[in-house]
């Protein structure tokens, strides 16, 4: 076991997997960082530090700095995957999914089904998401619900360095397109990471806490916020089952339903607006499949139906927080 942060876990996994599998290539904007400049390639080595050193080790055929062209980046990944390679495309910000959406939505996601199961499309699209750093309406969004809704895509959101390694390895070994979400506020989160080969199957949630009084389901950074609320509530003797989904497609429905059958109370935390959200999806799952277990209406903790604002106070008001999660837990416990 080595201790490292999520950024390092992703970087090391890419290095190790590219060494293992010569079919893996990575492409994206500034992932080499310095091409065509006096400083030379690798002058910067990637904006996020998750691709540093790859170009030097694997060369320009496998590590491709692209112009600013998200449609072409994602489309090229789709094509390379159809042609038998294992591309890893990087979107500098998940918001830029908007630019490349057709290549994900109408193309990559549907190839296998449209072609009668004859093909596979093992492309990984890594993208940096999340609010909390005042990056405003076009650089802060958590677009996982949109992609979770699309049949054919798998959606992954690691919250620990070990999960980052295990889930990225799984993505690179699998044969389906995977949307790999990296929260910009979680890159520095440290933890132990298993040595050697380490895979985490998709569709298996992580039980972060077992407390028994209320079920809290979250993903991404909202797991950390929920943990803070859990600490506060634990001091008062309130126990939380905290479920980190890890993947929203496929989703570990059993973990959610099993827990709610015990607690009878559900709080879902989702870093996105409420309409057609993950929160709404899970509330519906529990309402339809565990109705008789419920002792209180499901609580959804989400942002408002609004874009993400720039101003610090407005952004704070927009985002779910440990306090709003705590409030939702108290409401559901108080329901009679």
């Amino acid at each position: 076991m080595a201790v490292m942060n999520i950024r390092e876990a992703i970087l090391r996994t890419l290095h190790e997997e590219m060494e293992r599998d010569p079919d893996i290539l990575v492409l994206g904007e500034d992932i080499v960082g310095g091409n065509g400049t006096a400083g030379g390639p690798e002058a910067i080595g990637g904006i996020w530090g998750t691709t540093t050193g790859l170009w030097e080790k694997f060369g320009p055929n496998r590590v491709i700095d692209t112009p600013i062209s998200e449609s072409a980046i994602v489309g090229a990944a789709a094509g390379a995957a159809l042609a038998g390679k294992r591309p890893v495309a990087e979107l500098m910000f998940a918001d830029f999914v908007g630019v490349s959406l057709d290549q994900l939505w109408n193309q990559m996601a549907k190839f296998r089904y449209m072609f009668g199961g004859k093909t596979k499309c093992p492309a990984v699209v890594r993208m940096v998401y999340g609010a909390g750093m005042q990056t405003a309406a076009q650089h802060s969004q958590s677009v996982y619900a949109l992609l979770t809704a699309m049949p054919g895509l798998k959606v992954v959101l690691p919250t620990t360095p070990a999960d980052a390694k295990g889930l990225l390895t799984e993505a690179l070994r699998g044969d389906d397109p995977v949307m790999f979400f990296e929260h910009k506020a979680l890159y520095g989160v440290k933890g132990e990471v298993p040595d050697g080969e380490y895979r985490i199957p998709f569709g298996q949630a992580r039980m972060v806490r077992e407390g028994g009084d209320v079920t809290v389901v979250a993903c991404g950074r909202m797991v950390n916020f929920a943990e803070k609320a859990a600490d506060k509530l634990a001091a008062e003797g309130i126990g939380m089952d905290l479920i980190d989904l890890r993947t929203t497609s496929p989703m570990d429905e059993d973990a959610i339903l099993d827990s709610v059958e015990q607690t009878g109370r559900l709080v879902v935390v989702d870093e996105s607006p409420p309409r057609c959200s993950l929160a709404a999806d899970i509330a519906a799952l529990v309402s339809t499949r565990a109705f008789t277990s419920l002792k209180a209406p499901p609580e959804m903790v989400t942002g408002p139906h609004a874009p993400i604002p720039f101003s610090r106070v407005l952004e704070r008001a927009w985002l779910p927080s440990p306090q709003t999660i705590e409030g939702a837990v108290r409401r559901t416990l108080a329901f009679r």
Binding site: G34, N35, G36, P67
Partner: peptide, 13 residues
């Protein structure tokens, strides 16, 4: 001459 850290000599074909 630059888009972020990439030179236009590289990126503009």
């Amino acid at each position: 001459h630059y888009s972020e850290h990439t030179g236009f000599q590289y990126a503009v074909g």
